[in-house]
Nucleic acid binder design. Structure first.
Lengths: 227, 227
DNA sequence: TAAATAGTGTCTGTTAGACAGTATACG
DNA sequence: CGTATACTGTCTAACAGACACTATTTA
């Protein structure tokens, strides 16, 4: 809070969201074609100014951006970091509160001309410092996947342990030990088995379906020693 | 970034700093007596508006606040989180980019009437949402101390391993195993021994002095598996 | 030489990964 | 019954903590 009453050059405050999903074993980010200047017509992160008259806080602004501009609801949302400076936006000194959002691929909105879902390994050039923001999101998601239940937010309502392990492996970019993974999931007690097993007609033993325990639905669960 | 050009109610952006130091085995926070309304005369976190005409980014604003309002320089600075909403400041919808700063006690400024250094376990009532910000800083410092070299920023230029272990223990609030701690410090290779040993006239074997390796002076070093 | 803390060697229990086995579906 | 994947039992290697021992200073 300020200790003086002097007024200074205005600072623009916006919210930017890195919306990630997992498609065909690869993390993808959702980009929006910018409607207005600057960078009109360019693919960029979904974002927008804070609406002081309707947003309860910046997280609510991010949720509103996802709802009104991307058309999704219920994504896992977590504040990432705040980016600032005179050069990141050509309009002048600006502040962007960046959020990271995770969504199962099946909850993505239907195809739209102004929405692009691209692998994070093949992003186009992004305006502002959006590339830095995406990089920060990827670093955060990868590091948190080492010791938390964060990746469950990329799975649907129910999933099998082999599926969940694959999600972890896709995010981390390295194979995990099956026995250790299942032992951890068991110890952490984040999941509960659903009555019916998944058969899916595959020519092998069906896998048990699990869902996240209600207590961890919105919150993250942490593991003391990783994995 | 915004996708529209509409303009809305203004949002105030400030920077708040949780400056922590270790005094007599206890974490202390530095509070400043507010000079201006709101909450004039009340102890609060050092903070201030961003000066768009001189600050390179919000971190520079935080460093400037520490320099001009608290009188310190060279503290370890790390962005914490951004707090926002219509209710946190009586002047209206506001955004506070919070930073956490660590400083060895010997680098604190000389006593001043408008500066108070209080144990974090005995903080007074704080205005705005400064209590939430302090709590976030403590949670961050404690969790990062589990797997990084962050506590070295609370030590002076040189220190002994028993001293450093005590800093970790004071932050974490629990005793650490001496053998394991020294084994980790050795494996991580963050420190280097200084030529002379510290005797300090104590009636026992003197301890080797260490300093942080130059590569980790400003950056943090992480440990893959904790401690 | 007694007291006090620094620093080290080694044992043991815990945890993580490798491997191989059993279970259960489909064709 | 062959194949493919789910799941489990068990061995082994790596790691962390406990304990005890040696080292070096002052009084």
């Amino acid at each position: 809070m300020n200790q003086t009453t002097e007024s200074r050059e205005t600072v623009q405050v916006s919210v930017d969201v890195v919306l990630l999903t997992l498609i065909e074993q690869q993390l993808h980010a959702v980009l929006l074609k910018r409607a207005a200047a600057p960078f009109a017509g360019v693919w960029a992160l979904p974002g927008g100014y804070i609406h002081a008259d309707e947003d309860a806080d910046a997280k609510a602004s991010a949720a509103r951006v996802l709802r009104t501009k991307v058309g999704i609801e219920g994504a896992y949302l977590e504040q990432l970091a705040t980016f600032s400076g005179p050069a990141r936006d050509p309009r002048g000194w600006s502040v962007a509160i960046a959020y990271c959002a995770l969504l199962p691929v099946q909850n993505l909105p239907p195809d739209r001309a102004d929405i692009s879902v691209v692998p994070v390994s093949a992003l186009p050039q992004l305006p502002f410092d959006h590339r830095d923001i995406v990089d920060a999101a990827l670093a955060r998601v990868r590091s948190k996947s080492l010791y938390s239940s964060l990746p469950v937010h990329l799975c649907g309502e129910t999933f099998t342990l082999p599926q969940l392990q694959q999600v972890y492996e896709n995010i981390l970019g390295e194979p995990l030990n099956k026995v250790s993974f299942r032992r951890k999931m068991d110890e952490m007690d984040w999941l509960e088995a659903v009555a019916g097993a998944m058969q899916s007609g595959a020519a092998h033993r069906p896998a048990q379906l699990y869902c996240v325990k209600p207590a961890f639905r919105q919150e993250l669960a942490l593991s003391p020693r990783g994995l």
